[in-house]
Write a protein that binds this DNA or RNA. Structure first.
Length: 357
DNA sequence: TAGGCCATCTGGTCCT
DNA sequence: AGGACCAGATGGCCTA
């Protein structure tokens, strides 16, 4: 087993990447760029990918991928085992997923959140009418089962501002908790929209106190509408009605604001940015995961494991390059470094190794 | 079933 | 003022 990791390590050390590192004697050279993707490039690629996956996910939900030509990877709902293997553990056909979603709505809210290969895969585009560009070509199919404005489909070649794409799991979120349609949950409003500061203004106070309940009622109504919709007629037609009702409702009532005087819309936008940010970090982890040695190619180390292995790997490379990046400047020998990283890989991949054996 | 891991939402803080 | 970054809370998925 040692041979596996050690050989793999040496294989990596013999690559052009290592040569490049060795040739770069100047301390000013950016070692991070040797063999690793920079954060900026990763970010851009990650965002574009996430965006594309968002669109694909939205298309796959209604099983209309053909309309957009070739179907890339990710159009199907791949529910992967993220930790242990790179291979998909479950593959849910888009049509089936759509059916399941509809049926889950028909029998009440989904009890479990669906896990996707990436959050972009799980994306359900929620594009508020206020943020939508002028109406595009109307489609018979929805861009998403949750699209707020079903009549406005985002064409493949029009990439919206990521900040305007609201990604939401079709099932549970903190904002959109599942609860039996016939019973009321204890928490009846989104956490962020609870007014914390007591308002001296009587009018505003009454609005702040009443609105969460109204919002809950609206959500409940929306769930019920969706529930009835799935039972009676097509999901598409009814969601359109729901979205219209939602839109008109939002126009007729003042915007909800949280403690930061943040509107609901801005909170959702902030959530989207936060997701994008976290996705970028996850993508960087994924890049790093591919850049470090592992026990097996199919093994998927956790983020923490990736960091640990990467640290050992970098230290080993630095020693082979005649430098010492160890924290204590102890100048370990190359043999010691290889032994350390081998141990690290074995430790971090312990579970998987046992399974393989 | 418990524990680990991860995604998401949220509020707080800092920076531009 | 708004966005980026961060950490806590929550809940789903997976494995032993």
């Amino acid at each position: 087993m040692d041979l596996v990791t050690t050989d793999k390590l040496y294989m990596r050390l013999n690559t052009a990447e290592l040569e490049a590192i060795i040739k770069k004697d100047s301390p000013s050279s950016n070692d991070r760029d040797a063999g690793f993707c920079s954060a900026s490039s990763e970010s851009e690629g990650g965002d574009d990918l996430a965006l594309e996956h968002t669109l694909q996910r939205a298309r796959s939900l209604v099983g209309s991928t053909d309309e957009y030509g070739s179907v890339k990877e990710g159009s199907a709902l791949l529910v992967r085992n993220k930790r242990k293997s790179l291979e998909p553990s479950k593959v849910v056909e888009p049509a089936l997923a759509s059916t399941n979603f509809a049926s889950s709505l028909a029998s009440g809210p989904p009890k479990k959140r669906i896990r996707y290969s990436s959050s972009a895969d799980s994306a359900v585009m929620l594009t508020p009418p206020s943020l939508l560009s002028p109406p595009q070509t109307s489609h018979t199919n929805l861009s998403s089962a949750h699209a707020c404005n079903p009549s406005q489909l985002l064409p493949r070649d029009i990439m919206p501002n990521p900040a305007h794409i609201f990604v939401r799991h079709p099932g549970l979120t903190t904002l959109h908790r599942a609860f039996p349609l016939t019973t009321q949950p204890e928490q009846q409003e989104p956490l962020a929209l609870i007014a914390r500061k007591p308002q001296s203004d009587n009018v505003e106070t009454s609005v702040q106190q009443e609105s969460p309940n109204l919002q809950f009622e609206k959500k409940t109504l929306t769930h019920k509408k969706l529930h009835d919709a799935c039972n009676e007629t097509s999901l598409e037609q009814n969601i359109e009605g729901i979205c219209k009702a939602d839109h008109s409702d939002s126009l007729s009532r003042p915007q909800q604001r949280n403690y930061k005087n943040m509107t609901r819309e801005r909170r959702i936008e902030a959530n989207a940015r936060e997701r994008t940010r976290v996705h970028t970090i996850s993508a960087a982890y994924e890049t790093l995961r591919h850049a470090v040695p592992a026990y097996a190619s199919s093994q998927k180390l956790s983020k923490l494991s990736v960091l640990r292995v990467a640290c050992s790997y970098i230290l080993t490379l630095s020693r082979m390059a005649g430098k010492d990046y160890s924290s204590d400047r102890s100048e370990p020998t190359i043999a010691e470094c290889i032994e350390a990283i081998t141990s690290t890989i074995q430790t971090e991949g312990k579970v998987k190794r046992k399974k393989d054996e």
